[in-house]
Amino acid sequence: MIEVRRLVKRFGLKTVLRGLDFQVQPGEFVALLGPNGAGKTTFLRILACLSRPNLGEVSIAGCRLPGQAAAVRMRLGVVSHLPLLYGDLTAEENLRFFARMYGLRQPEKRIAEVLGLVGLAPRRRDLTRTFSRGMQQRLAIGRAVLHDPDLMLLDEPYTGLDQDACAMLDTLLGQVAARGRTLVMASHDLERAAGMASRLDVLSRGVITASARCDEMDPSQVQAFYRQATEAPRGA
């Protein structure tokens, strides 16, 4: 589903990604772990066609970036810590707008389905700026799954959510994963990531420093795995 080779991204003199290699098979749920400033958001923005790499190759579902970005964006759903929603539009209007941008054929039916899925049907006519952080994030997920994407990119989707909202997000992402969609989630929450994902990758110092399948790892080993992967090499 995702094939990344020798990816380099620089911002001025600062190199954020240093020849990163990364592969994801269809249907996998990969949790991307790493300390602050490791380059997780930059990497996800490149996969989301929001940023251009300086060097390297990226292909998603057989489409090369940036040349075939429009085809990739059609198959992509993105959730970040920002809602990516318009506060002065209602929940329904926000989804209607994105349904038009994605060219949905039966938008009203799909909007009703999605609002039901994220539990916001009773609030569909309320302005999103009146929503709590948890409700905004639920609607953001609704926006991301509106066109039923093959690949979901999630950048710290749990930021600022309370326990109930986190539990609902867990359920929603579990449903998406259960339907065979591919997910890549950047997170700092090791336990939650290990509990949900099928694979853990650690991004540190601009490269993937470790990768492990969750079903082959004891939950008690996650902390040690992460610590070992993020420790600076001697002499670095």
Partner: peptide, 14 residues
């Protein structure tokens, strides 16, 4: 302000 520009740029349109 709310990341909406990213939301727009993610849409599969020219």
């Amino acid at each position: 302000d709310r990341g909406c520009l990213d939301g727009l740029l993610l849409a599969p349109v020219d």
